[in-house]
Amino acid sequence: MKIISAASALSKKMKIKIKEKLYELTFAVLAFSSLAFLVGIVIVLFREAMPIFEKLNIGDLVFGRFWYPTYDPPEFGIFPLIIASFWVSLGAMLVCVPLGIGSALYINEIASKRQKEIFKPLVEILASIPSIVYGFFGMAILAPFLQGLLGIPIGLCAFTASLTLGIMATPTVTSIAEDALSYVPRSFREASYAVGANRWQTLTRVVVPAAGSGISTAIILGMSRAIGETMTVLMVAGGAAMIPGSPFDPVRPMTAAIAAEMGEAPVGGDHYHALFAIALILFVITFVFNIAAEFVSRRFRIKLGLSG
């Protein structure tokens, strides 16, 4: 009798142990799904883009100056689209870097506790506005307004797209830069005040340099956000697939080309594969930006003695 109950107790213990192991295993498998999706995305992009790389060499594809996917014979030169993406995003940077960092400095340095409690949520709400709303705002309100104000022939152009994207990326830059500023230890400031520096001198010569790589992370991620943004540029940038000569030319960034053309491209055709090739290039660009941001922010945390 005793032996049996001991045996059953033992097997009960075993059961619990096995059950616990099973739970852990299940969670482990699920946790790897994010890795699986990332790898899956890479595989899908490569697989679907491959056929076009077999037909054209990479140089012709990436540096080809003409994007006429529906002509006969079609031309698949992505260069104008890549230039357009950078053109529009760099324009957006001119808006979101000063505004974003300025706002972060305000929240961190000037705002009273009460103001902070108002401004920080407002910035977050600005970040939560969907891109389609920005696109609509740019198309229905900003473009006609700028067209009248600047006397430009078309309102839907790189300039308007840059402005809209810039507004959109500002809260991203603000939040990350503000985070970086708030990590700068109090002692840095106190040391600076102690040797007679005023608040502005402390800010520009001590706090900002100390938070420098954190702020760089903010800028890099803002740029990554701007390059990957789709709906806004699709609606506002004008859509002409040519190398822009001025900020007021209509352009077609990579994301806009994918979104606008994928619906009409026959599945399995050259155009379809070329659009996947664009997505692959876009993925690589944003991947590089994200890795760079990660690298810079890790260095920042080590420099300030925070845990990596």
Binding site: I41, V44, I227, T230, I258, M262, A279, F283, T286
Partner: peptide, 9 residues
């Protein structure tokens, strides 16, 4: 950080 249109593809 992957652009949203890539999720669509």
């Amino acid at each position: 950080g992957v652009p949203s249109v890539v999720f669509g593809l």
